[in-house]
Simulated scan of single mutants.
Amino acid sequence: MRLDFFDLQLFLNVVDTGSLTKGAERSNISLQAASERIKKIEQQFSVNLFTRHASGVKLTVAGQTFVEHSQQLLQQIQQLQQAMLPFSQGLRSEMTLWCNSSAQSEYLPALLPQYLIENPHVQIDLQEAESADIILALDKGTAQLGLISSFFNSNDLQTLEFADDPLVLICPKDHALKHQSALKLIDTLNFPFVGLMQYHSLQQSIEAQAKILNCAIQYRLRLPNFAAIAQVVSNGVGIAIMPQRAAKRLNEFYHFHQIELEGDWANRKLLIAAKNFDELPVSYQHFAQFLVSKKSLLTV
């Protein structure tokens, strides 16, 4: 069945004017063409939409029902046209994704190029923050979509599992801890560390855990990224904590030991979080669905 939106508007024009002649005039077509189009609709549905009389036309019960649905369909097509307008005019859709250090450096660089190539109208701004701050921003409505650590309480948000993201300790090959297979954070705090710069969300999280233990981390050096940390750790400068995914990648270039860290804060998952996924703008919903679809590719 093919339904012409012009015919629906013609039908409503006839209803509005109460006359086939006036309805045809409003639609800028001849009376004969209008009559044929209305007759075609009636034949499609095997109904009579109007009763004809000398002064004009009157709706049948079927016609009244057809009015309601015609109005809904025309409203929907107008909404569709408005939704497509930004794309047809080449306007860009801007989104902000809040994420922690690990998500920004280890997961998103592998995924975002594909999404951006498939959606050339989209622009994504990555806002790095500590998971607790992302949760607060989502709860307040200043953020719409975030990637957070499962260690933090996000019970007031909706979440979807994105990836396993455990933390590990790395140390030089000849370090005193090299024979350990697993450690608690408290077991490491007597040794000098190499860490990220203070503004990095992961470093803030590690320091928050040390503070809970009434300890302060001793830093020999702070660096801007995991690659720089791996290099100086391999040279014997100190120990460091980083995502297992980063350690595995960097161990191919630098020689160091990896040691499992115990505790919920270290054995974390990355979660996609929102206040309510169903209430997100369509662009954000589409992006969230893309991230979920890539979950199986993100093995540690």
Rank of each mutant, 00 (worst) to 15 (best):
L202C: 03
L157N: 10
D7V: 02
L85K: 15
C99N: 03
S88L: 14
L270Q: 09
L49T: 10
N48K: 12
Q203M: 09
E36P: 04
G90Q: 08
A33N: 06
Q180A: 11
N153Y: 08
Q231S: 15
H69V: 11
N100H: 08
A54V: 13
R92Q: 14
D16R: 15
Q104F: 08
I29R: 14
M84H: 10
Y107T: 13
L185E: 00
I38P: 08
R2D: 13
S201R: 13
T96F: 15
N214C: 02
K248S: 12
F193Y: 14
Q75Y: 07
T65A: 13
Q75D: 13
S35T: 12
A176V: 01
G63R: 06
E207M: 07
L91H: 13
E128K: 05
L223N: 06
Q43A: 10
V122G: 01
L145N: 03
Y199S: 10
H286G: 04
A143M: 01
L145W: 07
V67Q: 14
A247I: 03
S181H: 13
G141H: 12
A129R: 12
F193A: 02
C171R: 00
Q285C: 14
Y199E: 11
Q71P: 07
I212G: 00
A163V: 02
K22W: 04
G23D: 00
R222Q: 15
N276W: 01
L223V: 05
A176G: 04
K269W: 07
A103K: 05
L223H: 07
S154Y: 07
A266I: 00
M95H: 02
E25T: 08
C215D: 05
L136E: 07
V57W: 12
Q158S: 12
H175A: 01
K22H: 06
L202F: 13
G146H: 01
S181C: 09
I186H: 11
S105Y: 10
E106S: 07
R268Y: 01
I229V: 15
L145P: 08
R220F: 11
V237H: 04
Q123D: 05
Y199I: 11
Y284D: 00
L3Y: 03
S101V: 04
L221G: 02
A230P: 03
S27W: 04
S131C: 00
N155M: 06
S131T: 02
T188V: 05
L223Y: 11
S201H: 09
E128N: 05
